[in-house]
Nucleic acid binder design. Structure first.
Length: 443
DNA sequence: AGTGCCGGGGA
DNA sequence: TCCCCGGCACT
């Protein structure tokens, strides 16, 4: 499919997490513009591509607080005169934001709302990474058989859509992590299937320490901030406006069946885990913790999916083993939650998860965990939760509460726990190791 | 396929 | 207001 414009990224971007990246980053010096202006051309799209491999982290590195302290990675773009010189490319451009410095500069000179509606270039001519010409995303709908019967009304709608530049969503924490780690995983696993790679990335994501995850959360948060600065009026809705036309609400009758299936494991007595602290609060995560404590939510809740801690009819929430890493990915609790049982149960499943992650027997498991005795059913199926969780109910191998609490948005609260981290890392290591072991031996 | 985020809309 | 779905972000 060539309906996507390859997103051109700056090769000279310095990621704040650069230390985590083992592969090299290329830096450019002022006066020595990157060669990607003459980048090779995608044979499919005819769109210039970056000459660098996609594994280089392309995120803007500067946080507002550090602006001015870190050498501008785009120094060559921002000459001393204060008159930015931007490269002009035709393709999408997903170096998310030209760093805070550039952003500020462009904001003062070219207010975000001045972004031309018909073009993916800034007024300055800078192709914004997050802007993609709408036509890119139009193709599929255009080619729809149904579109043959499209009315004039629809046509006019499409016209309008075409005029709107497509501003991509800011990357979330996991996406940032994915972009950074994908190449590594690919290299280690000799996997080519993105689905399989993503699975690994998902597991690794859960295996990350709080601190590491917090970095990405913080990054993502900054990206969102920056995004909103650049595009004050931007709404995520813009990104799937096409879907809105046909979107007609479904009924929620399925709920019961769905819910049962979903909670099967949690409703099973043998699976029961310590209930969440506040039994008198039959609320779901959102209601219990509030929006400002999303870090305490279970994974699905944070994804605005069904709460897995809440059991209908029981009037209480539980902290079941994560069906989808929900607890794992649930970032650390806020300081107020430090000693709560919630945290305990969380940390239990959290530490259990990495080893008990649904290990598929198929390609992934075979490739990456050939020695693993665990052969579990597909992930994200609570009913198929690993036996060590479902049978024991809890994992007592670690001290509850030893999990260092921290919120993804407050790095300062992260308290590395010596009692936890090593174990945690070893778990992660146990996961990672097979990846590299397998790399060649399979062939 | 993975997770995070967000808007819409049912309840 | 709560809750959940659908969709997008990337590869």
């Amino acid at each position: 499919m060539s309906n996507k414009v390859p997103v051109v990224q700056h090769p000279h971007h310095v990621h704040p997490l650069t230390p985590l990246i083992t592969y090299s980053n290329e830096h450019f010096t002022p006066g020595n513009p990157p060669p990607h202006l003459q980048a090779d051309v995608d044979p499919k799209t005819g769109i210039p591509r970056p000459p660098h491999p996609p594994d280089i982290s392309p995120y803007y590195p500067l946080s507002p607080g550090t602006v001015g302290q870190i050498p501008h990675p785009l120094g060559w773009l921002v000459p001393q005169q204060g008159q930015p010189v931007y490269p002009i490319t035709t393709g999408g451009f997903r170096h998310p934001y030209p760093t805070a410095l550039t952003v500020n500069a462009s904001m003062s000179r070219f207010p975000p709302h001045m972004v031309p509606p018909h073009h993916s270039l800034h007024t300055t001519g800078i192709p914004h990474p997050a802007i993609v010409t709408p036509t890119v995303k139009q193709e599929s709908s255009q080619s729809d058989v149904g579109s043959l019967h499209s009315s004039k009304h629809q046509d006019s709608k499409k016209e309008e859509e075409k005029k709107k530049p497509h501003i991509k969503k800011p990357l979330n924490a996991f996406m940032l992590y994915m972009k950074e780690m994908r190449a590594k995983v690919v290299a280690e696993c000799t996997l080519k299937e993105s689905a399989a790679i993503n699975q690994i990335l998902g597991r690794r994501w859960h295996a990350l320490s709080r601190e590491e995850q917090a970095k990405y959360y913080e990054l993502a948060r900054k990206e969102r901030q920056l995004h909103m600065q650049l595009y004050p009026g931007w709404s995520a809705r813009d990104n799937y406006v096409r879907g809105y036309g046909k979107k007609k609400k479904r009924k929620r009758e399925k709920q019961a069946g769905e819910s049962n299936e979903h909670n099967e494991c949690y409703l099973n007595p043998c699976l029961s885990l310590p209930p969440i602290a506040d039994l008198s609060a039959p609320k779901k995560c959102r209601a219990r913790f509030g929006l400002d404590q999303q870090n305490n939510w279970c994974g699905p809740c944070r994804r605005k999916k069904k709460c897995i801690r809440y059991i209908q009819g029981e009037g209480s929430c539980v902290s079941p083993p994560s069906s989808d890493g929900s607890l794992l990915d649930s970032p650390p609790s806020s300081p107020t939650m430090l000693d709560s049982p919630t945290r305990d149960s969380n940390s239990q499943s959290e530490q259990t998860q990495p080893l008990s992650l649904s290990l598929k027997p198929e390609p992934l498991a075979r490739l990456c965990m050939p020695q693993s005795p665990l052969t579990e059913s597909p992930a994200r199926k609570p009913s198929n939760l690993p036996a060590n969780i479902c049978q024991n109910g809890t994992d007592h191998s670690h001290q509850p509460g030893s999990l260092p609490p921290s919120t993804p948005y407050s790095l300062s609260t992260a308290q590395p726990s010596t009692s936890f981290l090593p174990t945690h890392r070893s778990l992660a290591g146990a996961q990672l190791q097979p990846l590299s072991l397998v790399t060649k031996s399979l062939e």
